[in-house]
Amino acid sequence: MQIRFDPLRPEAYPGLISAAAGRLAGAKAALLWAVSGDDPYLQIEAANQVRHWLQGQGYNERISETPDRFFRWRDWFGQTQSGSLFSSQRLFELRLPTGRPGLEGAKVLAQWIASPPEATALLVHLPRLDKKLAATQWLAKWIDEGVVVTVETPRPELMSSWIEKRLQAKGLKANREALALMASQFEGNYSAAHQELEKLAASPRANPDAALTPEELAQAISNHARYNAFQFAQQISTVGAARSLRVLRGLQEEGEPLPLIVWACAQACRRLPENKSGPALQRLSRIDTMTKGIAPGDPWSELERLVLTLAP
């Protein structure tokens, strides 16, 4: 059986897992699970839900392996047959980055599917299934006998919705501008977004019930960096050109997201006198189109030129 997880509806995961297990006849539904997808973090998130369900069924001892070319498949299979001193039911996990266990591995997995060890469940981590991979003998049999969860990766324009869902789960909320800022910063990197959301949830706030603002997000995102995009933008017109250029290059070396720097600079430039703010904002608008690949040019070089223009 194959089921699909939509990361924009994580609240549906437990129900989908229970329903899939209930639709399969016999005990194998609780024994054979696989999770596939093309985004590592979204796959981990889905696997955590499957693991949580299995723990609820009594599979409390977890043994994880990532087979390489030296992996002894027969020894591993023998381990699954032996009892445990710590738990009556065990969960074995296999991470197969290519989805191809090799000839011996395929035989062992086919043997497992045909005759699963008692009181033992198996969770396999796979890449996104294509037709060729799904047609391999052991995996085709797995789809017939167990459950394969496919995790869909949201389209890029929906990342802000994904962020909003995860913020809500942590008791936080953000306005649209703040969500758009985070989505542009992480550019589809769900693992980095998750780490930043964890930091935000752990950070004290003056008003915990208020929606997160772009200013708060920019400050929080920059707090853990040696070079601070928010402070850089605030000082761009008050410190010397040499220092501003040094900080800007430090931000570039640390991998600070360019959309965040451009946004922070725009906020700071709006507070400048009109004869400076207008031209600066026009240049930042052009730099923004460069970061998005709409206009030609090197956005970092253009930012350096802007620094030289605004420095006292």
Rank of each mutant, 00 (worst) to 15 (best):
A220P: 03
I236G: 06
G240F: 03
N228R: 08
A218V: 05
P214C: 01
I221H: 11
G240S: 07
S222D: 06
R205H: 06
S237D: 15
Q219N: 08
Q234E: 15
Q219D: 07
N223P: 00
Q231T: 12
I236Q: 05
T213R: 06
S237Q: 14
H224K: 09
S237M: 10
L212G: 00
A210H: 06
T238L: 09
A218G: 14
A220N: 06
E215F: 09
V239T: 08
I221F: 15
S222M: 02
Q219A: 09
N228Y: 02
L217I: 13
N223T: 04
A233D: 02
N207H: 14
P208E: 10
A206N: 10
P214N: 03
N228V: 06
R226C: 09
T238R: 15
F230E: 01
S237I: 13
P208W: 08
H224T: 13
N228I: 04
P204A: 07
A210L: 06
T213F: 01
A206R: 11
N207I: 14
I236K: 05
A229N: 01
A210R: 03
I221E: 06
E216Q: 15
A229G: 03
A220L: 08
Y227C: 07
A210N: 06
I221Y: 14
A218R: 06
N207C: 12
S237Y: 11
S222F: 03
Q219K: 09
R205Y: 07
A211S: 11
A220T: 03
A242H: 06
P208Q: 11
R243N: 13
F230M: 07
A242I: 13
L217G: 04
F230Y: 12
S222L: 01
P214A: 02
R226Q: 13
S237F: 08
E215C: 05
R226Y: 11
S237A: 15
P214E: 00
A206D: 11
R243P: 10
A233I: 01
Q234P: 07
R226F: 13
A218K: 04
P214F: 01
V239L: 07
H224I: 07
Q231M: 08
F232N: 01
F230N: 01
A211I: 02
N228S: 11
P204R: 06
S222H: 02
P208Y: 11
G240K: 08
Q231N: 10
N228P: 09
A233Y: 01
A211T: 00
S237N: 15
N223W: 03
E215Q: 11
Y227S: 08
P214G: 01
A242N: 10
S222W: 04
